[in-house]
């Protein structure tokens, strides 16, 4: 099944956070089209190690598109050309023999490069820590069926909750904004009755934290939605924004 192809990769190499980086070109020969992009990089790394060259560092873990660890730009596209796909689920059958691919890390002030294609996304955790939760202590939850939640509501909340925190939205945004990431969490909790008590405070804190961490604002280019491997809609940005304005200007928070 499938043929083998050869590619030219232009990969960002940067030995450490403070080191100067540069692009390095590698030829990759005769890789099966059935393997994933990361497995292709594995092969490259095996070869590099055997040649005594430091392997290309990239973040990865589950390799089934759910942990959110992996992600970099391939020819200017976050997670590569496929829609709704993390780079670990991107297969080489998507490429043609002789393709020239530029592979770069996520670029954002809030995502400093650690090494090669690995960036530090701790800022996303900080946004969640700024209220991206329901304040409910273990033990004081009412019966799960005590509060009926319509199927459509639950499903829609899930659409937002599906965010894997990979950072592709930030990377793809011309403003390096984390609006989609932040708004998806705001929106998920705002959909559900359990999220109501803290709804206004949550959105104000999370939005302000996002801004303070050095992410940009939303210019509504919608590149985030297109880059999102979980295809989270930009509608969540509108909704969260309305919550923010309401909290700020109506409720005076």
């Amino acid at each position: 099944m499938g043929d083998t192809i050869s590619l030219t990769l232009e990969v960002w190499r940067q030995p450490g956070p403070l080191a100067k980086g540069r692009f390095q070109t590698y030829e990759v020969k005769d890789v099966s089209q059935n393997i994933s992009f990361l497995e292709m990089l594995d092969l490259l790394n095996q070869r590099l190690i055997s040649e005594g060259i430091e392997p290309v560092h990239f973040e990865h873990d589950c390799r089934e598109g759910i942990c959110g660890s992996c992600g970099f730009m391939i020819n200017g596209q976050a997670h590569g050309p496929d829609l709704g796909t993390t780079v670990c689920q991107l297969h080489m059958r998507r490429f043609k023999n002789g393709d020239h691919l530029v592979v770069e890390p996520w670029r954002a002030r809030a995502f400093p490069v650690i090494r090669d294609l690995v960036v530090d996304r701790a800022s996303l955790d900080k946004i969640i820590a700024a209220g991206g939760y329901n304040s409910v202590n273990c033990g004081n939850a009412p019966d799960a069926n005590a509060m009926p939640i319509g199927r459509d509501t639950a499903e829609e909340a899930f659409d937002a909750a599906a965010c894997i925190g990979c950072g592709a939205c930030v990377a793809a945004c011309k403003n390096a904004s984390a609006m989609l990431f932040t708004s998806a969490k705001v929106g998920q909790l705002a959909m559900l009755p359990q999220g109501q008590p803290e709804r206004s405070h949550r959105v104000v804190r999370m939005y302000d934290e996002m801004q303070a961490l050095g992410f940009g604002a939303c210019s509504w280019t919608q590149d985030c939605e297109a880059a999102c491997p979980k295809e989270i809609s930009v509608k969540w940005i509108s909704r969260a924004k309305r919550d923010y304005l309401k909290a700020r200007f109506k409720e005076g928070l």
């Binding site: 232009e10 692009f23 596209q77 002030r109």
Partner: peptide, 19 residues
């Protein structure tokens, strides 16, 4: 602020996945 948010290095190659 938006320009600063991208950080010191930009992208070499630009693209989009929008349809």
């Amino acid at each position: 602020d938006n320009a600063r948010a991208r950080g010191p290095a930009g992208y070499k190659k630009h693209g989009t996945k929008q349809t």
